[in-house]
Write a protein that binds this DNA or RNA. Structure first.
Lengths: 346, 346
DNA sequence: CCTTGTTCGGAAAGCGGTTTCGTCGATTTC
DNA sequence: GAAATCGACGAAACCGCTTTCCGAACAAGG
């Protein structure tokens, strides 16, 4: 049915090796035979088999994509999906396709043996999204010879790198802005899920508050179970129930913020007049809440693009481990009170 | 470095074929050798090469995912991403991994030669998302021997199938609801992009209106360029400028609806008091608009899951072409006026 | 005219699996 | 007790491509 390299060779009246060399742009072929063979390949619609090539060369032009960790991140995650989109685009420009591991029947020592899956497909590299380095399945891969880059998770292997927003700065920007608006009692809604980024956000927030000489009141620091709306709602409820409220709250994700605002609204506490709120991620929905949610925008496009570039470098130049951190941006809308007619400024 | 089947055979003191048979669960191997070899594979961390297996068997356990067409659909699309998520999950249960074609350097007669890419990777099947059958790159694939299933696009090839919501019913449900609420002047915001689903939605809408004996006023039917917010805004602006407004509008996507509501708000036309709005898709943001957007929910989880199941069937039972249509659901929130204190009912 | 280089192209050995046969000893059948 | 059957395993061809090495042909150099 489908032709192989031998067929092409026969039709062209040359050897298999000649055809192969043409496919791979070797210089040792005369222009004449080259164009003749090329034309035949064109006419017959010949497509070389990637499996055979991979078998022979040990490079597959495939990049593995792993949604790591127990955060249950998947295609529906508003942040990662944009990162992924830009990653895919850039990786495509560089000549790679993407493979997503989903096969549940794949068994090779535990179900999440990422390393095994990577070897199975002979991926040239892989990107890990939002997990924790500590998981054995992750660190195993991290420490292998397969180039890996982590998005929003630190990787330390010899052939690994990572990229994330400057999560410390995310928080310090928020504190600065709150301070500028005159708020002195600052609260925080995070997540109990241990992860590099949530740790950095929280510590950045606490440290910056202290550096401004403001009090850190533990009553105003609550954690939801995860980063989703329900957690934000529930966390805010708890804070309200505690009887003491800060003047402004930073939520570690927009979804947490949206949940928190819902709780606030239910208790007739107005945002931003009674308590100001800033979220994080700038998901689409944040533009449509009432009040519109002020937030921190991460440069998702850039993160994805750089992730691809870093991985490419790791693959092709066996370069050293590298880490990139990208600048966050404060998006001022309504929920933080910047635009209040009678602002609390100064 | 990494062991191959020959190494395992040598260590175990058996032949390569024996190992292979064990990997593939052939029955003709004694329990004794089987467990011995299995243990060795376990201990050494042996991982079989998929390329070699694919080369030999012509099955890769890989499903190609193609964002087809010029609609520019990608990971950030709120509807397809959820379908994809559920598709991936189900496909994984069935033992398949997913490959996304992004490689821009892949050239084999035009850049979007999907069929060539499928052959290149020897995918067992593929899913096409949101394109038009007419594009040559699509129909070529559709008519090949590769099992394909289309999501939100019709496919007619011998080894193809498709699945989508009942788009006609989507519209008729909206009309029915509007009618029930007492609205008699009904408008529509669609997209000029030709596609199976937009055609069906519009014709369903028009036909149902007529079947209720209501007038179809062309002034109230406008199309944005695509399905995104800006188009909805701009289309609504045009309708307003035309001087005549319907009492209720169905927008063919939530994003169109959100854009339309923005235009309405800017012109101080209140929703739903002056004009009621219903969107389509139930994207996350629709819960956070003011007023909250009533919409049609498509069963994305089911669509994705069935797509996977249909494809599996196509692959393994070379069954006939099949088409599935899934039931839409009306989600009543605020923008349609159902909950008005002083409803326009009856 | 012989040697030395170049250029172009082919032969063949892998790459790591699968699968068809065939072998061989042990068991059953008559 | 000979023949047929069966169970467990191995030999080897094959899948489609890459790459090393070699050879032929021809040009240039001495």
């Amino acid at each position: 049915m489908s032709l192989n390299i031998k067929d092409i060779a026969k039709i062209a009246g040359v050897s298999v090796s000649t055809v192969s060399k043409i496919i791979n742009n070797y210089s040792e072929i005369s222009e004449e035979t080259r164009s003749k063979v090329l034309q035949i390949m064109q006419e017959t619609g010949y497509v070389p088999s990637n499996s055979a090539k991979t078998l022979a060369t040990k490079t597959s032009n495939l990049i593995g994509v792993i949604f790591a960790g127990k955060l249950n991140v998947d295609f529906t995650h508003p942040f990662f999906v944009e990162v992924l989109n830009s990653f895919k685009k850039q990786m495509g420009l560089l000549g790679y396709d993407l493979v997503f591991f989903s096969n549940e029947k794949f068994q090779s020592g535990g179900n999440n043996d990422y390393l095994a899956r990577c070897r199975h497909y002979h991926v040239d590299g892989c990107v890990l999204i939002s997990g924790q380095e500590l998981e054995p399945s992750i660190s195993q891969l991290d420490n292998s010879d397969i180039p890996c880059i982590g998005v929003d998770m630190k990787l330390s292997g010899r052939s690994s790198g990572y990229i994330m927003s400057d999560n410390y700065k995310i928080s310090s920007k928020v504190v600065e802005h709150f301070y500028l608006l005159g708020y002195r009692e600052l609260g925080y809604i995070g997540s109990t899920q241990e992860s590099d980024i949530s740790n950095m956000r929280e510590s950045g927030y606490r440290n910056t508050i202290e550096s401004f000489g403001l009090p850190v009141n533990e009553k105003w620091f609550v954690n939801g179970g995860n980063f989703y709306e329900a957690s934000g709602y529930e966390a805010m409820r708890r804070m309200i129930a505690s009887g003491s409220l800060p003047r402004a709250i930073f939520a570690a994700s927009d979804q947490l913020a949206i949940g928190a605002m819902r709780a606030l609204k239910e208790c007739s506490l107005s945002v931003p007049e009674t308590v100001a709120v800033i979220g994080c991620d700038d998901i689409e929905a944040s533009r449509f809440t009432t009040p519109q949610l002020s937030t921190i925008r991460q440069n998702k496009e850039k993160i994805g693009r750089l992730a691809a570039l870093m991985l490419y470098d790791l693959i092709n130049n066996q370069s050293e481990t590298s880490a990139f951190v990208v600048e966050p941006e404060l998006i001022i809308r309504e929920s933080c009170g910047s635009k209040l007619k009678d602002p609390p400024y100064y």
